[in-house]
Every structure is written in structure tokens, then in C-alpha cells.
Computed example of a mutant assay.
Amino acid sequence: MMARDPGLQPERTRLAWSRTRFSLALFALLCFRGWCRDGNLFYGAATLMCGVAAASILFNGHQRVGKPLISLSLCAAGLLLLLNALRHLMA
């Protein structure tokens, strides 16, 4: 029986997760900047949610264990920023 050749798939997966982690960390820093500048709690909560997602990717990598936590935290951060935008539009 021949051994399965994984090819470059594991390397591509690792690179994709590292890009995702970098993007989340950058987004968390931008939300943190907004929180420091405006003192807006929506930005602070979004910073926390994106930080949780980035840390989950950092510690779990490409395993299936952390994917629901990552999805939940990103959806929550997006919802918080949407509520913040609606609050600014209504004011």
C-alpha cells in the first residue's frame, strides 16, 4: 500500500491560518485605537472579541476545536460594530 502524499495542502492551510490571525490582530488594534480615541464601549468590546478570536487561532491553529469560538467571536464583533454604526447614523 502506498503512503498518502499530502503535497502542499498542510503548508497552505498553515499559511492561511497565519494570514487570518494577522488580519484579526490588525483589526483588533484598529478597534483598540477607536476605543482609546473615542472611549466608545462598542469598540472596546469588539477589540476583546477579535482578540479572543486571534488568540484562539494562535493556540489552536488549524484544529477543529476552536472554530466555533472563532466564528462566534467574529459574529459578535461584527454585530457590535454594526450597532455602533447604526447608533452613529441615528444620532
Rank of each mutant, 00 (worst) to 15 (best):
S73N: 12
G66D: 00
G66C: 02
L26E: 12
N60Y: 13
W35Q: 04
M90N: 11
M49Y: 08
R21M: 13
W17F: 15
A55I: 04
L72C: 09
F59H: 15
S18I: 02
N40S: 15
F32Q: 09
M1L: 14
A77F: 10
H62W: 04
A53C: 01
R64G: 11
L81K: 06
N60W: 03
Y43A: 01
R21Q: 14
A76C: 12
L82W: 06
T13C: 05
G61D: 01
S18G: 03
L29I: 04
F59V: 14
L83V: 11
L30E: 06
G34E: 12
N84G: 07
L26T: 12
P10M: 00
G7I: 00
L86K: 09
M1F: 11
L69M: 11
L74R: 01
V65T: 14
S18H: 07
G51H: 09
L89F: 08
C31G: 01
K67F: 07
G7A: 02
L74A: 13
K67G: 06
K67D: 10
L30F: 08
C75L: 12
A91K: 09
I70P: 00
N40V: 11
L30I: 02
L26A: 12
L80R: 01
R33E: 06
Q63G: 10
E11K: 06
G78R: 12
A54Y: 07
L82P: 03
L74H: 02
T20Y: 07
T13M: 13
G44D: 01
A3E: 09
R12V: 04
G39C: 02
M2Y: 08
C50V: 03
L24D: 00
Q63T: 15
L15P: 01
E11G: 03
R64T: 07
A54H: 04
Q9W: 02
H62N: 09
L29D: 14
L80F: 15
A77V: 09
I57P: 02
P10H: 02
R33A: 12
R87C: 13
L41N: 03
E11C: 02
L26N: 09
V65I: 12
T13R: 10
N84H: 14
R64C: 05
L15N: 00
P10S: 05
N60L: 09
F27T: 12
H88G: 06
T47S: 07
L15Q: 14
P68C: 04
A46C: 06
L48A: 04
L48K: 08
L26D: 09
R37E: 13
I70H: 00
R37C: 06
N40T: 05
G39R: 00
R87Y: 14
